[in-house]
Design a protein around this nucleic acid. Structure first.
Lengths: 223, 223
DNA sequence: GATCGTTTCATACAAACGTTTGAATTGCAA
DNA sequence: TTGCAATTCAAACGTTTGTATGAAACGATC
């Protein structure tokens, strides 16, 4: 059995297991059982459990960023170098939503792994997570070009809150389904994406939303 | 040393430790060291580690729900039994935001524990989490009274997405601060609350937002 | 002050974890 | 075929974990 086969089997099994369970709950023995390899193979090929998870995280992160940036670039190219705000937001949030919720894509393990990695924190991940900020900065710059008049804080808030809605929708699928008794269709990725995008765009294009929020904040300082 | 003192010391220490670290990373030995009690005291007073965490979770959950419902009731009483949409949303999201972000409240351990419990899942917690759905239902009903014309799905989505923005803002404080280089003030609880509430209200009061999202969803079915 | 239930304590236990070891096996080059 | 490096394997190691035990200390009641 070739070495590459073992490496790949471990990566695939670990990604799938970690997509559904907490990192701490997934043991090396679970992984090697699912991959049909020997226990020592993980430390032989990857050095440690954390290093294995880090490798999966990096690979998934690169794949996700590539998909996002391709969508952003497509929108910019179609608009003579300038993408609309809704296009920037869609490029940011749609890939993960589709990877995690779309039944046609059989719920990609890579996407679900990313969602879990965004919650759990292994010390080794901190360096990688800093790169995520750099990645977001490119979307912030695209958004600033789309809305030159907006305050920087409003731009950052819109990107953050759109991501927040997308991530938590993925995390809270069960609760939302139960709460709405099925009225909210969690498989309708297009509908969910447009709901989040339109909310963010409305907030960004509303008149002086930042100043109004600040004023309201001051007036309701009590309670 | 009285028994109640030991119980209270354990509860306090465990809550504080679990507010800052993952449940799995907080060991019984960490807790007893912080509480200055014997190792066996935890199993003697609470039965098991999970039971201890469950007791903290229930207590924190009750406290949070009480605070939310008090705010909702105050708004309903002030409006002859009918609260405005923004008041319903504020009652839902402000307590946790304030407990976790407000520096004046010295970042309540109870609130941060709740945020962590919403992410981590101990088997014992599942029953308690079902109660959270019942709790949310009361806000859904209040919202339906405020907006009789809205589709149920829109109501549920608005509550879910408002909660999503609040929770992830708390979780991503570090990333948003770094991304915005301080331009986003994470200590301005009033400003953050109003930003989230106004976005949700706009989505709820926009004309036929549900149908428009569905239409847009169909038109962008590609990509 | 003796008694008895309650609480504390030091200590031990069994299980599970990630990791290591050294021998066995494989696959390829000479 | 021989030789050698790469890989696989069963087994064990040392920690750490939550939990259990039994004796000691405590505190109220009579």
């Amino acid at each position: 059995m070739s070495s590459d086969h073992t490496r790949h089997a471990i990566l695939t099994a670990a990604e799938r297991l970690c997509a559904d369970n907490s990192f701490g709950d997934v043991t090396l023995r679970d992984i090697v059982a699912a991959a049909n390899v020997n226990l020592a193979a993980i430390n032989y090929h990857f050095g440690s459990k954390d290093a294995l998870l880090a490798e999966i995280y990096i690979a998934s992160s690169i794949a996700l960023n590539r998909e996002r940036l391709a969508a952003l670039k497509a929108a910019e190219d179609a608009g003579q170098g300038r993408a609309r705000p809704d296009e920037v937001l869609r490029a940011l949030i749609e890939p993960l939503l589709r990877g995690c919720l779309d039944p046609d894509r059989q719920r990609s393990a890579s996407s679900r792994f990313m969602i879990r990695a965004s919650t759990e924190s292994i010390p080794t991940f901190r360096r990688i997570k800093n790169k995520e900020v750099d990645h977001l900065r490119r979307f912030a710059e695209a958004m600033k070009r789309a809305l030159p008049g907006r305050a920087d804080a409003d731009i950052y808030w819109s990107l953050h809150l759109a991501l927040a809605m997308a991530h938590q929708t993925i995390n809270d699928v069960e609760r939302l389904t139960k709460l709405s008794d099925g009225a909210c269709d969690l498989a309708d990725v297009d509908g969910i994406t447009e709901r989040i995008v339109s909310m963010s765009v409305m907030a960004l294009t509303a008149n002086a939303s930042s100043e109004r929020a600040a004023a309201k904040s001051a007036s309701t300082r009590r309670k």
